[in-house]
Amino acid sequence: MSNKIKCSHILVAKQSEALTILEKIKSGEKFGNLAKEFSTDTGSGKKEGNLGYFTKGMMVKPFEEAAFKLQVGEISEPIKSEFGYHIIKRQG
């Protein structure tokens, strides 16, 4: 397993919002466009959800655990953290 991975995410306040966005992704809408439109993370949201590269210990635990389990190109189910609900896409 790599020590450094690259992910994008979409952050929303409610699980119901996250599930709706996940359905849009599954029906073919682009992750980056949905991140720009819906993510409450103003920093990464403007960059299509791109968080860049990070290592273990840099992100909140629930996010980190989910992100490091994903394969490249894989998208997570909604993950709850202290910030809200994340949909994570592993980039590399």
Rank of each mutant, 00 (worst) to 15 (best):
Q15M: 10
F68A: 09
P62V: 14
E23Q: 08
S39F: 06
G52V: 09
V60I: 09
S16R: 13
I25Y: 00
V60P: 05
L70H: 06
K56G: 08
H86A: 04
T20Y: 14
I21M: 01
E64D: 08
G73H: 13
V60D: 11
Y85V: 03
A35P: 02
S16P: 02
G73E: 07
Y85G: 00
K89G: 08
E37P: 03
N50P: 03
E48R: 15
H9W: 10
E17M: 08
T20D: 07
Y53F: 15
T40Q: 10
I79E: 04
N33W: 04
Q91D: 13
E64V: 08
L70G: 05
G52D: 10
G73V: 11
G49H: 02
Y53I: 14
G32A: 11
S44C: 14
H86F: 12
E65V: 15
A66E: 08
N3I: 06
H86L: 05
A67P: 02
A13D: 13
Q91G: 04
I25R: 00
K14V: 03
I25P: 00
N33E: 15
S2Y: 08
Q15F: 04
K69V: 04
F68L: 11
S27F: 02
V12M: 03
F38C: 05
F68I: 13
Q91I: 15
K6I: 10
Q71A: 12
A18M: 01
K36W: 09
G73Q: 09
K6L: 05
F68S: 06
M58H: 13
I75D: 01
Q71C: 03
I10Y: 00
E23F: 01
K89L: 15
G45L: 09
V12I: 08
G28F: 00
D41T: 07
L34K: 01
Y85W: 15
L70A: 05
K6P: 01
D41L: 08
T20K: 15
L70R: 10
K46M: 08
L34I: 05
Q71V: 06
I75W: 05
K47F: 15
E77V: 11
L11N: 05
S2L: 12
S2E: 14
K4V: 12
S8Q: 02
K6M: 05
A13Y: 09
L34F: 02
G49A: 07
Y53C: 13
K24C: 01
Y53L: 14
T40I: 14
P78I: 03
M58F: 12
F68M: 14
G28E: 03
K6A: 09
A66W: 00
L51S: 11
K61Q: 08
G45H: 06
E37M: 13
S2G: 06
K80F: 11
K69P: 00
E23A: 07
F83V: 04
K69L: 14
I75Q: 05
C7F: 13
